[in-house]
Design a protein around this nucleic acid. Structure first.
Lengths: 214, 214, 214, 214
DNA sequence: AATGAATGAGCCTTCATTCAT
DNA sequence: AATGAATGAAGGCTCATTCAT
């Protein structure tokens, strides 16, 4: 996979327009022509910057993973309070939302885009998984979470699955207000998932944080 | 949506061939031509039995939901032991696996097949959700599970999301042996999810059941 | 071309249903399946009675021509008064209307149905033309019409073209009331066409007959 | 309806090839594939310039109407002599001939192409009708024609119907020589139609013009 | 006579991609 | 860098017609 990153202003604009359209209408129904049309550029220009549609998707995938990684890293470094955790969670959900076409399309893309399948197996299931594992480990070190290794390992998986399940359950056409409510609901859902593993002495602040979303 | 059910042997054979191909290759890349070719029938024959590909997918969706509903109903009626529960879980995972293209394709199908989107919102998110809720409520009545209403409600959601996440994470080309391992892993994962809500006096048999999958 | 005529009740029912559908929706968009469906019979049954769609159209054409011929013959035999003429005209228009798909579809059918093309050239342009010519000749004998041979010959052509033009200009979905108005308008139009050739001494009754449609 | 007019050389070539094929073989049997094949271009190219066959037909209709309108306008401006009138008539017939598939296919197209139905009702039955009415009115002003308003109105209708009837009666495969004879016959036919309304003092030049076609 | 499932050629159309300019 | 016309494989689907029963 090519290294992610903006190569030129046009490159970025294509990526952004694609993301918008993919999120709105679904990657499956958006053609390269749609993207070019929406941007008022020629198809030729689009194909000058990307060899094909796959490459656009792959680049978006890279950006998605990079963003997730950054947020997890930040969370790892600032996981000293329940509030910080909740804040991180919310940010993560928003990030997923801003790439919502991906969780929706990835499984169906794998049969068409083997590069992506390969990447997902290694990167996401590797890198992101790891980081989330580290985060939970750190939280255990700090006494916020408890549980044995295999419990936390499963928690990592479940956490990711619930994130994905969350974004998949929202209508693409949700309004800003609806989104806010959904983000709150998503945070609540994730907190319920963590709740059994929150240490007794952190239960109070945790419940208080939960209340914020009630 | 038309009522599900076999209308004729050919109808059923088309459904079965489609399911097989969808599961193997991904619904997105399988065309009606592929299905007809694989079955050695004319496209006309296929279109005599189904107005279009959508109708095939919809019929498969109906069958999927019907099967899930039946299994949940059965589980509700025989939820007297941990073993029974685990058995039900395993059956459910196998059923999902046998329709694995659906959890993978549903999100991307919604932007193309509005009937399906509508149905999913009502049927799955309604009927199946309800049944799973009933099952957990019953388990609580019997003292196997504990937790307040909202905890169990979230457990329902998480349970479904983990099921979906599980099937999505398996390679379509998994061998029979691999599948067996994956089913075990899936059961284990779901048990970890339930574990915090298992009543203390059922923890022992629960852990024993877990051990079966270790 | 096969001799026209009812061969069996089913034969007739197919013809009638076809006529109805052709008139309503246009022969071009009505398939043999439509006809069978509308009649609640199998396609097989339809094809037992007619070798193909062409044969249905041809049979309808035969009936159309036969009806026109009969009406012209009747007119020839009762052309003693202006009123009789006008009545005949009206009947003719109604008959054309009841086969209105034909004037609309004939030209486009010729490139697909050579039998029809051949027949039309000979039958219509022959038989009907002749009869209308006879009628006008008879009217001239009786002193109602005047004009030389070539004038009357052209009148024959124009008369037919105006009939065709008339039916083509009406919406297929015209209501019964609209139809009545259109028939009146059609009669008026044809009378205007004849008017210059009506003998002076018949002008008064002719104008009176015209007034009926004013 | 899109404004008529050449958008590009290819656009025009497609239109011309389509017109030729439609006229030769009948619009009903000519598919977009035929057109592309005949032109030795890819179907994609054709669909790059026209969204579908309908659009090609509509464009041809626009050109047909535009041409008719121009010829009628010219006739209105130069209707000072019988000869000019006859010349205009002949030009009109040739124009209709060059779009002969249209009068043949329009009625059967209406049930398939609602845009065309709508347009025909308004444009042809409106615009062209009007112009022809103006022409006859002008001829009456100049003393060449006589007749009351409703007579001339009907004359307009009949004139158009006879034009249509004329072109419909010619074999598509007519040779150049045959065409010449048919054009003459058509002019003669139209003159017979007008003849009763030609003022007495113009009868002589009118008959002389007629003789040209005898 | 009738059924209705089956055929298959072929239509319309899309769309990722290329390429001359 | 960019244009936008062009390609062509392939997809979805129709429909007149056949045929085993």
């Amino acid at each position: 996979m090519r290294k992610s990153g903006s190569q030129s202003p046009t490159f970025d604009k294509i990526i952004e327009a694609s993301l918008q359209l993919f999120n709105q209408e679904g990657e499956r129904v958006i053609t390269t022509n749609h993207i070019a049309e929406r941007m008022n550029i020629s198809t030729g220009k689009l194909y000058y910057h990307f060899r094909n549609k796959e490459e656009i998707v792959n680049e978006l995938y890279q950006r998605y993973v990079k963003g997730m990684g950054e947020q997890l890293s930040a969370a790892i470094n600032h996981c000293n309070s329940i509030e910080a955790m909740v804040g991180a969670m919310e940010k993560t959900l928003r990030h997923i939302w801003s790439f919502r076409f991906l969780p929706q399309s990835l499984p169906s893309l794998f049969c068409v885009n083997p590069v992506l399948a390969e990447n997902h197996q290694q990167i996401s299931r590797g890198q992101l998984n790891n980081k989330l594992g580290q985060l939970f480990a750190r939280l255990r070190e700090q006494g916020m979470l408890q549980g044995d290794d295999s419990q936390l390992q499963h928690l990592v998986q479940h956490f990711q699955m619930v994130q994905t399940g969350w974004v998949t359950s929202i209508r693409n056409s949700a309004s800003a207000a609806e989104l806010e409510r959904m983000v709150e609901a998503g945070c609540r859902s994730l907190m319920y998932l963590l709740s059994p593993y929150v240490s007794p002495r952190f239960q109070q602040p945790f419940q208080r944080a939960c209340a914020r979303f009630a």
